[in-house]
Amino acid sequence: MEFEPLALSAGPYLDLQCEGGARLIGSECGDCGHRLFPTAAVCPNCMSENMKRLPLSRDGRVYSFTVLRQAPPGFESPSIIAYVDMPEGVRIFTHLDMQPGEPHCDMPVRLKPVAPKTDKLGRKVVQFKFAAVENA
């Protein structure tokens, strides 16, 4: 499956071919060690351009979530959205593959690639979600 970057200046942020399964890809600064998601060409901590590819763990923890009853154009309504904290120290804005009422703060979750839908602008939206560990 081909993935086009959704956020215009983000590099490839999902690698389905990683050893052990799909991974999200962030960046780590080769000079100061600062990490972020999605990838970046320059470090927001030290302005270094020596940025390395950083495959992230598959497992994270829901920091917070909500059920967005009217999602922005191109997205499914309702959208269950969340910030998920990863062991690498980065926080990811994502969607949850769950029903309303299921998610809670500090819930363990796992990356789950999903078949992307194409929005009106032809962008492939929501290429991954996070799911309860047993459903990922």
Partner: peptide, 13 residues
Amino acid sequence: EDWDFAYGLAMPG
């Protein structure tokens, strides 16, 4: 270019 909003965030969310 903003990841959160490009991936479906809105201010009420």
